[in-house]
Amino acid sequence: MNNLIVSKSMSVALTAFFCIALFVIYLPILVMIIFSFNSGKYQTLPFREPTFEWYVNLIADRSFIESFFTSIVMASLASLAATSLGFFAAYAFSKAKVPLHTLFLGLILCPLVIPIILIGIGIRLQVVSIGIQPALWLVLIGQTLYVLPLAVINLKNRIDKIPNSIEEAAISLGSSRFTSICLILVPICAPTIFATILLTFTFSFDEFVIAYFLTNFEITLPIRIWTSLVTGFEPKINAVGTAVFIFSLTLGLIAQFILLFKQTETQKN
């Protein structure tokens, strides 16, 4: 069937293009990973002796470890907040007649289609003009706002596909709205909810601009990395980069995997 659309020679060309694209996408990351095991203070080729020195340095560096834990806490809170707010909002949009549906949905999804930098600057200008100092709790709010659209879209897609009859049956048999959500809707959506938590976690864990705008002294890991990148080269930055890359990649891939495969599976059943 596919040869109707793509001729043999086209198919070869497309395959070649795809391979080149993969190479371009992964080349710098590979280089970074290789450099993270390279001894020698300056990050130039040729490759010298392999070493774990930078990883050891990294673990010994308190500022990195502390900012890592700050990021973990922030991203956990932001992803849980966004997923739960998003779940209820998606439920309302999907299963009720919301007045001004498009307007409200648009408002909630808006942070997705504006430059992220405007979220950060907006909140910062607002709080500074009423005399509040930028702080970590504002980063939490900003990042929740930033990942909320993702949560709403994912969860709304899922809830849209659940027939109303399931819940109606439960309610006509005497279940309360709350019980029917907890015992029916949440279990049905469990894979999607889990994937959404992971995905929003990854996005907020890696988010830099909002955090940079909204905090002065307490720093998250992306800010710590940024400081190191712009103020002068530390060789261990390759090790940090590799660690963060693998960490986020694993979480993101699991989430995407669930969304792309698991979800379609449960729908088939």
Partner: peptide, 12 residues
């Protein structure tokens, strides 16, 4: 790579 840090990728 889209799901990983923008900053790290720019640096790499």
């Amino acid at each position: 790579p889209f799901w990983t840090s923008f900053t790290i990728r720019a640096f790499s």
